[in-house]
Amino acid sequence: MKKILLGLLCATTLFTTAGLTASAADTDNPKPQISKGKIEFLQGGLTIDNGATDLTAASLDFGSNKIEAAKAGDKDYRYANINKDAAITVSDLRGSGAGWKLSVKQNDVFKNDKATVNKELTGAILTLNGVLDTDASTTGADANVNKNVSLGEVNSDHVLMDAAVGKGNGNNVANISGSQLTVPLKTARAEGIYSTTLTWSVEATPANS
């Protein structure tokens, strides 16, 4: 009986010691704990130049030009845009990658209201030459920007930039500084400023749908 009691005492002491040792070892080297980090993004909008209605950034200026005769061999008068910062931005902050389409139309012919004659620049064709400005755009911007977009027909929409499904997220900036205005040789020009406006529209529908 004594042997049994002694054995139980030893066993109890052994277990207790082992337990205390293990507990001490846990305190010295604790298990790594896990914490969570989280961020949520809410859907934004699809806008042109952050919703601005007056796009001065996209102003096209074909300069101040002398009225002079064409050189021999010229087919028409060509005037280059001198606003080197001319650009248009589409911000797709929806986060859905649903794609979009940016259209532009010329609202009227170039007009000089102060002129007494030749008030309209008849036959003048505005051609937009767009290039994706990767420096100004969001990293990895992948919208498609078109060149040689001729706005010959007034009030007719033309696609300058578009993004297929899965593309065009963030800011996509189209540099249009390389645009030019072509005026037929037969068009009479009056002194002064001829101007028009362009209306830009972004649609939440990809161009290929």
Binding site: G45, L46, T47, I48, G51, A52, T53, D54, L55, T56, A57, A58, S59, L60, D61, F62, G63, S64, N65, K66, I67, A69, A70, K71, D74, D76, Y77, Y79, I88, S103, Q106, N107, F110, T116, V117, N118, L121, L126, L181, L185, K186, T187, A188, R189, A190, E191, G192, I193, Y194, S195, T196, T197, L198, T199, W200, S201, V202, E203, A204, T205
Partner: peptide
């Protein structure tokens, strides 16, 4: 399906000198 955002921008060109007459518009 319609436009979600629209905006206008100007485009202009200026001519200096004497206004051309319609009767002598033959470049060159």
């Amino acid at each position: 399906a319609s436009a979600v955002s629209t905006a206008d921008s100007p485009a202009a060109i200026q001519f200096e000198g004497k206004t051309e007459s319609s009767s002598n518009q033959h470049g060159g």
